[in-house]
Design a binder for these strands. Structure first.
Length: 496
DNA sequence: AAAAAAC
């Protein structure tokens, strides 16, 4: 009964584990083989048997560890015996529901499910906001066994009575911590109240915060905990470098890193939507094919950007944290943090976009003087100091669309003696269309250098001290809403 | 402080 899932086989060490060992149907194995997978990842090796056995799961796994397959494959398997080829929608009630925090993630999980189930009679579809409801409604009316959704649009469909969740036997909450962060708890509660109490529930989360534990204790029954890598740890395949740069040099630094390292594909993370759009424009003007992806862009723009990036048509995908979690882009060699994230956990997720599936990757972060707090938080979370080096930005990203000037130093301290400012329009780079107005020229560009840049960053003494002081970092994240009240007031049975 | 998600 009591079960340590993974590690009881001494023979498994001798022979390479394969997908055949789980007793999955030939149709599923065929699809897995066609996808090019031969060896289950640790999370798959652990989760698949547990899910097949019908148990609830509380899973902590980094995205990109093969998590999606770890629940999709056994769910498909469990649905198979009662699958039928009937065209009648009534014969295809939703029996497995998978919820994700972002639309892109939903789309991606759906693509995986589609792939793994393609040789089976099972049907699946995905619903999320920002796009026309009608095609989604049509697909639901035709009937699907597996539904992947973001919570808001799913509730919309519930209200429109285009979907019935009364037959759901298996529920997946993917990136559950993220969903709570995003304030999805009320939506989740509404959805969960529509589901049969008798069901299998799988909850995946990057962290096991108190909120997550509370959610799990409310909605999961005697779950098996599966933890592959310690959460908050980072992938050893990812080389992390922090470059100290002046805030105003960041755009140029990004362009420079892309050029110097000849990065063909890179995701650049920004903290704000406006910042992402702006950086994408600047990079474009510097001759780098770039597109922004964030929540203020239309869903079709978002999908277009992501598709073009996956096809290799875009060099730099400039993103907010909408793209931080879960997105699987094959062979992404690097990510750049234009800003350090406010939330240290997002750093782990961002850099998790690279170095996936055993490949190596670089996580390059720009850190300005006012981001040291974030840097300290990150080091605390990942429990080690980061390699920090100065970056000499020799390339200036130009806002006016001209080519970047090379080998031009800037951002130095102000000259001791004041040089005469020429207020007339100038420049040997050809005639300007318009005379530069006073605010066309960035004022105060020559800011005094911050002391951050004068003395070398000292990770060793202070960071190590921090490191030691925080071996057991306490979680801060206070819930935005009184979570206990919300959970308490909903009258769901605590695990029976 | 900012991002994400339903209309």
């Amino acid at each position: 009964m009591s079960d340590s899932v993974a590690t009881n086989t001494s023979t498994a060490e001798a022979t390479e584990p394969t997908f055949d060992q789980f007793g999955l149907s030939a149709d599923i194995l065929k699809a897995v083989r066609e996808s090019g997978y031969t060896t289950p990842t640790p999370i798959q090796a652990q989760a698949i048997p547990v899910v097949l056995a019908g148990r609830d799961v509380m899973g902590a796994a980094q995205t990109g560890t093969g998590k999606t397959a770890s629940f999709s494959l056994p769910i498909i398997q469990r649905l198979l015996p009662n699958a039928n080829t009937s065209a009648s929608p009534a014969r295809h009630p939703v029996r497995a529901l998978m919820l994700t925090p972002t639309r892109e993630l939903a789309d991606q999980v759906a693509a995986n499910v589609q792939t793994y189930s393609k040789h089976t009679p099972l049907r699946s579809t995905v619903v999320f906001g920002g796009v026309d409801m009608n095609p989604q409604s049509d697909a639901l009316r035709r009937g699907v066994e597996i539904l992947i959704a973001t919570p808001g649009r799913l509730l919309d469909h519930v209200q429109q009575k285009t979907v019935n969740l009364g037959q759901v036997q298996m529920l997946v909450l993917d990136e559950a911590d993220r969903m709570l962060d995003m304030g999805f708890l009320p939506d989740l509660q509404r959805i969960l109240n529509l589901l049969p109490k008798e069901r299998q529930t799988l909850l995946f989360s990057a962290t096991f915060s108190p909120e997550i534990k509370k959610l799990a204790s409310t909605y999961l029954r005697n779950p098996q905990t599966i933890e592959v890598a310690r959460s908050n740890s980072t992938n050893a395949n990812v080389r992390q470098i922090v470059y100290e740069v002046h805030e105003s040099d960041k755009s140029g630094a990004v362009a420079q890193l892309i050029r110097e390292r000849e990065l063909k594909q890179v995701i650049v993370f920004c903290n704000s939507k406006i910042g992402a759009s702006r950086l994408a424009r600047v990079l474009e003007k510097d001759g780098i094919v770039a597109t922004a992806i964030h929540g203020d862009r239309s869903q079709s723009e978002r999908m277009q950007a992501l598709d073009a990036f996956k096809r290799g048509e875009i060099e730099a995908l400039v993103a907010t944290d909408v793209a931080a979690r879960g997105l699987d882009i094959a062979e992404l060699p690097a990510v750049i943090n234009f800003d350090l994230p406010f939330n240290a956990e997002d750093y782990v997720h961002r850099i998790g976009r690279t170095g996936r599936a055993g490949a190596s990757g670089d996580a390059l972060s720009l850190c300005s003087a006012n981001e040291r707090k974030q840097l300290a938080d990150i080091e605390k979370l990942i429990k080690r100091p980061l390699e920090v080096e100065p970056l000499e930005v020799t390339m200036r990203a130009r806002r006016d669309g001209t080519a970047p000037r090379r080998d031009e130093r800037f951002g130095r301290p102000e000259r001791p003696e004041r040089t005469e400012r020429r207020h007339t329009s100038r420049d040997e780079s050809g005639p300007r269309r318009r005379t530069a107005g006073t605010h066309d020229r960035p004022r105060g560009r020559q800011q005094p250098i911050d002391e951050f840049f004068l003395k070398p960053y000292e990770p060793s003494p202070s960071a190590m001290k921090r490191h030691e002081e925080t071996v057991e970092p306490e979680r801060k994240s206070a819930p935005k809403q009184p979570l206990a009240a919300l959970l308490g007031g909903l009258g769901m049975p605590r695990k029976s």
